[in-house]
Simulated assay, not measured.
Amino acid sequence: MGVLFSATPAEFRAGVVSRDELNALQANPPAWLTDLRRNGPHPKQVVAAKLGVSISGLARAGITEPLTTAEIEQLKAENPEWLEHERGVQAEARKEAARLKQR
């Protein structure tokens, strides 16, 4: 679902969601799900994707906690050296993966 499980409502965390219920949540998300997707806090895989870095890159930068959309946007605006470096690392990894795939 692309959201931090611990940020979901308690009743959602306490229950079991069937495949049909999950499909319904995806097709017609409730307000809490829409809000979490828009504002966070986001799990690390979403944070990494929004910043254009790897999860390992986040760890190297010391980012281990979930971030909100506002915090992610602030990092993008500040563009610290580590972010620029990790984006370059990610770009090189993608190039290498594409090169290997062509072989």
Rank of each mutant, 00 (worst) to 15 (best):
Q90C: 06
P43E: 06
W32G: 14
K101P: 00
V3F: 08
G88I: 02
A97F: 02
H85M: 13
E11T: 10
N23F: 08
A59N: 10
E21Y: 06
G88C: 04
P9A: 02
L51D: 08
R87F: 11
L25R: 11
A61R: 07
A61N: 07
A10P: 06
A93Y: 00
T64V: 09
T64D: 10
Q74I: 11
P43M: 04
V16Q: 12
M1F: 00
P80H: 12
Q74T: 15
L58C: 07
A24K: 13
L36W: 03
L83F: 07
V16E: 13
A77C: 10
P80M: 13
P30T: 03
G88H: 04
A93L: 10
P41Y: 09
P29G: 14
R13H: 06
T34E: 15
N79A: 15
N39Y: 10
K101C: 00
S56W: 01
E65A: 15
P9R: 01
A98V: 00
A98E: 07
K101G: 00
R19F: 09
T8V: 02
V89P: 05
L4K: 01
E71Q: 15
F5M: 03
W82P: 04
G15R: 14
A77P: 06
E96A: 06
I55N: 09
G52W: 10
E81I: 07
S54F: 05
P80W: 11
E96I: 03
Q74F: 11
E65Q: 15
L67S: 07
K101D: 02
V53E: 05
A10C: 00
H85N: 14
A48W: 05
P66W: 02
V16G: 07
L22Y: 15
R38H: 13
H85V: 10
A97R: 07
E73P: 05
P66Q: 04
A93H: 01
N39D: 15
E73I: 13
H42F: 12
L51G: 07
V89N: 11
A49S: 13
K44F: 02
L33F: 08
E86M: 10
L36E: 04
Q90G: 01
N28W: 01
L75M: 14
T34Y: 06
L100V: 00
E96D: 01
T64H: 13
E65M: 12
A48C: 08
A77F: 12
G88L: 06
A10E: 13
L33Y: 07
S18C: 02
E11K: 03
K95H: 03
A31H: 11
A7C: 02
W32K: 14
R99Q: 08
D20F: 09
E11G: 01
A27H: 11
G62M: 03
L67K: 14
S54Y: 01
F12A: 10
V3C: 01
V89S: 05
V89Q: 11
L83Q: 09
Q26F: 07
G40F: 09
L36F: 07
K50C: 01
G52A: 09
A49Q: 13
I55F: 04
P66H: 04
E96T: 05
A61I: 03
G52Q: 08
R99D: 03
P66G: 05
L100E: 03
P9L: 04
W82F: 12
G62P: 02
V17S: 13
